[in-house]
Amino acid sequence: MQVGVDYFIEKLHSEHQTNRFSMGPDASLRPLKSFIQRNALDFQQNNVAVTYAAIVPPADPNALHARKRIVGYVTLTCSEIDLDGAYPLEDCEAANRYQSISALKVARLATDNSYHGHKIGKTLMEFAIALAVHQISQFVGCRFLVTDSKAGSVDFYQNKLGFTLLDTEENRQREHPVMFLDLNKLDVEAASDAEDEPEGERSIA
């Protein structure tokens, strides 16, 4: 599937169809289904978090009650990261005196169970990165894109998207370790194609 042809990325809207979104039999992923169906729009309308959905158009757009189906989504919110001295900012040494640095957080990332293997999750993450670089960081301080990854998804974020695992003993032992992308050092040509991508991510924050 190709973004812009087979599916599109749009800011979540009340007319988007969420009731068919499925995360499959894994009970640990069910909160991702519940969020998009019950909470995401409310969070967005009340400026808590914004969700961008990967949607496929209805087979017959002229049909009565035709709605765009959500097949994946990424939820973003304002945040910060405590680097704990593990990643000093060499290009802005004065900022190292602060405990936390500004960041945009990927709070949730999910792909419908029926659409795994189409790299929708990777495309949504690339969209989030582009949004952070070309929109958000141009108007407010936003040095990092961060996420609380599942331990099994560290390779996806690290090797496919260029994220760094926060290198502290405490973080390495976490069930959902903190990972970050330094937007000031982003090489947009460096990301390789993802062969595998996580079924879903949910921030524990």
Rank of each mutant, 00 (worst) to 15 (best):
G117I: 00
A95F: 05
G117P: 00
F127C: 07
K105Y: 01
A128M: 06
H134K: 12
A94S: 08
N113D: 15
L131P: 03
A128S: 15
S114Y: 13
L104I: 08
A95H: 05
K119F: 12
T111R: 11
L104T: 11
V133F: 06
V133P: 03
A103K: 00
V106A: 06
K122R: 05
D112F: 08
G121L: 03
I101E: 14
N113F: 10
I120L: 12
A110E: 02
V106H: 02
R97A: 13
A107H: 04
H118V: 01
I120A: 10
Y115P: 02
S102E: 14
S100N: 11
I101N: 15
A107C: 10
E93G: 08
L109P: 06
I101M: 14
L131H: 14
V106G: 07
T111H: 08
S114H: 15
H134D: 14
L109T: 04
Y98S: 02
L124H: 07
A94Q: 09
K122V: 11
S102Q: 08
I120P: 05
K122I: 03
Y98N: 02
Y115C: 07
L104K: 12
G121T: 01
L104V: 09
R108W: 10
A132F: 00
H116A: 11
F127D: 09
K119I: 14
K105S: 03
L104W: 09
Q99C: 04
I120F: 10
N113I: 08
A107F: 02
Y115N: 08
I120G: 09
K119Q: 15
H134A: 09
T111A: 05
I129C: 12
K119G: 08
A94G: 02
S114I: 04
E126I: 03
R97W: 11
V106F: 07
Q99W: 02
V106Y: 03
L124G: 06
V106C: 13
R97F: 10
S102V: 08
H116M: 09
E93S: 12
F127R: 06
A94P: 00
L109A: 13
S114C: 10
H118G: 00
H116E: 12
E126S: 06
L131E: 14
D112E: 11
I129P: 11
H134G: 08
R97K: 12
A95Y: 06
A130S: 15
G117F: 00
L109V: 08
G117S: 01
V106D: 04
A107D: 09
V133K: 14
N113M: 07
N96H: 07
S100K: 14
G117D: 01
R108D: 14
H118T: 03
E126T: 05
L109C: 07
L109S: 10
Y115S: 06
K105R: 08
H118I: 01
A132R: 01
R108C: 04
N113E: 15
E93D: 13
I120C: 09
H116G: 05
